[in-house]
Nucleic acid binder design. Structure first.
Lengths: 189, 189
DNA sequence: AATAAAGCAGAACATCCTGTTCTATATTGA
DNA sequence: TCAATATAGAACAGGATGTTCTGCTTTATT
């Protein structure tokens, strides 16, 4: 990719993230993004069709990054132990989030986080299908497989949101403990 | 309240609900609401400061209605049994939703449902605090009370959303069964 | 029934945001 | 070097917002 394109794209992502941490998505104007990124109006529209298109691209980049990281952690050796325990991938994600990689927490806690959460949950669904194929098997407990997967993803996201709302007072390990406690019916048996 | 005000308010709510079931909130224009409600531009702005203000008012009216209904069901006799069982209020809510009172399902399943969900969860939190004061007690299981309440509310909402996404194939009783199965760690003991 | 108060309709308006188009300049990769 | 491409900047039309003004209709009260 042309260096100029990459540079512009990075500048827009950075400016957009910064603005999102300051004000609501819907109150951010394209011109503000353009000014913050210090680019020309034409340039913005050469990269993104609309503001929503930019949001989608940003979500894709951010969530792809942390989900991939959690996927890798299952296969490579590293600092996190118990690679095959049910909650290991989630603990890894909590740790990743606690480090606020890519300022993702600002985006998740901003007022208009609905679109983020949708992408986040979809990414998590993919991760769960890979890491916990057992959930997809014919269910002995009469719970549909996709209901269980959605439940796990949603509970994870809601746990993160609760943590953010409470000024991040818990460690990743504590969060993983809470998460595993309430999702226990899924893993047992 | 002046009959004219009430009539205008109802017309706006009805028109807005209808539009929300057809297109995204953000793509609905104030002029469209005005035309659909068949009122004057001035009249709209005499009732609501902005489109977002209208959304807030609509959420308040809808959720207040079904939550109040669930509250009452706990105290009065009715067609739903086991009034004091942990899941009775939730079963009542599922039944209420299955009847799609006030076309609330269209609003919950629309693309821009983030604001609805926020109000829905807050309303549910209030209901849970009243119906399940035990959750507020000092926790023996190391889970913070507000974490548990948020977990229950979120899981309820996510269950409803999953049901909507799957063409409402389950009965309220089945949904309540799924819901109680995954929230079991909260109620036991 | 008469009347004052309040709600409503409709038009006009300034303002802002959007997305496009044009021209000219600067940078890149081959 | 040079052709291709990315960018800057200005200008533009279209559309949405929220306000203001004027005149009309309905309501609640006496």
């Amino acid at each position: 990719m042309d260096r100029r394109q990459q540079k512009t794209r990075d500048a827009v992502f950075a400016a957009f993230s910064r603005l999102l941490s300051q004000k609501s998505y819907h109150k951010i104007t394209v011109q503000e993004i353009i000014d913050a990124a210090n680019i020309g109006r034409t340039t913005f529209y050469a990269h993104f069709e609309t503001k929503e298109d930019l949001l989608r691209a940003l979500c894709e980049a951010l969530f792809q990054h942390i989900i991939d990281s959690a996927m890798d952690a299952a296969h490579t050796h590293g600092r996190y132990s118990d690679k095959n325990a049910p909650g290991s991938a989630f603990l890894h994600l909590f740790q990743h989030l606690a480090e606020n990689d890519g300022n993702i927490l600002e985006l998740l806690s901003c007022e208009s986080n609905g679109l983020f959460l949708r992408y986040f949950k979809e990414s998590l669904n993919g991760l769960i299908r890979v890491r916990h194929p057992g959930l997809m098997q014919v269910e002995q407990d009469a719970l549909p497989a996709d209901f269980k997967i959605n439940f796990v993803s949603s509970t994870f996201v809601e746990t993160v949101l609760w943590w953010l709302k409470n000024q991040r007072q818990q460690t990743p390990e504590e969060l993983a403990g809470y998460f595993m406690a309430v999702t226990a019916p899924i893993w047992e048996k």
